[in-house]
Simulated scan of single mutants.
Amino acid sequence: MIINKANLSSLFTAIKTSFNKGLKNTTPTWNKVATLVPSTTSTTTYAWLGQFPRMREWLGDRQLKSLALHDYSVKNKKFESSVAIPRDDIDDDTYG
């Protein structure tokens, strides 16, 4: 195979098509251990209330309790996993 822009573009399309076909035959497992949380900023802050009072029988006046605010921030990171295709496989046109 002659290495030029047109052939590399065709190769990329063929590999992407093959990858997507294989991807259709898989069942994702990440959702068993994680929750998808969309983020539109570089850091996401999660807040929650702590020290929630226990329920009690209401006798007499209300007894107001203070709640504590807790939070933590997660900085978004980028991940990738690139793969290399041996040049001999491209030269020998083993990808079609």
Rank of each mutant, 00 (worst) to 15 (best):
E57Q: 09
T40D: 06
V37H: 02
M55C: 05
K32I: 02
T40Y: 10
F79W: 13
R62S: 09
K77G: 02
K78P: 00
M55P: 02
Q51E: 09
G22T: 04
F79P: 00
L36H: 05
G22S: 05
I85G: 07
D92T: 06
W48C: 08
V33P: 00
T29H: 07
T41S: 14
K32C: 02
V83L: 12
K24P: 01
T41L: 06
A84Y: 12
K65H: 13
A68W: 00
A34H: 08
S82F: 06
K21E: 14
L36N: 05
I90K: 01
S73V: 00
K77M: 11
A84F: 11
S82M: 04
S73F: 01
F79Y: 14
K21V: 11
W48A: 10
D92N: 15
N31A: 07
R62Q: 07
S39N: 10
M55A: 14
A47E: 08
S81N: 15
L64C: 04
S73P: 00
K78Q: 13
D71G: 11
W30M: 03
L23S: 08
W48Y: 12
V33A: 10
T26R: 14
S81F: 13
Q51T: 10
T29Y: 03
L64F: 15
R87C: 03
D88V: 07
M55L: 13
Q51Y: 04
I85N: 03
R62E: 07
E57C: 04
A34K: 04
K24T: 07
W58N: 06
D89A: 08
T45C: 01
L23W: 05
L36T: 03
K77C: 01
R54C: 07
S66I: 06
P28C: 02
V37I: 15
P38C: 00
L67Y: 08
S42G: 12
F79H: 14
K65D: 08
L49W: 11
A47V: 10
I90G: 00
P28H: 02
N31H: 13
V33L: 06
M55T: 09
K24C: 02
T41W: 04
D88E: 10
K78D: 13
D88C: 02
M55F: 14
H70C: 03
D91E: 12
K65C: 08
D93T: 05
A84H: 07
W30G: 00
S82H: 05
T40E: 06
S66P: 06
Q63N: 07
W30K: 04
K65S: 13
R62M: 09
D71I: 02
S73T: 11
L64E: 10
R87S: 06
R87E: 09
T29N: 11
P38G: 03
W30C: 01
V33E: 11
W58E: 01
R62A: 12
Q63E: 09
R62V: 09
S66T: 12
T26D: 05
V37Q: 11
A84G: 08
I85V: 15
S81T: 05
D61N: 13
N31W: 09
L59M: 12
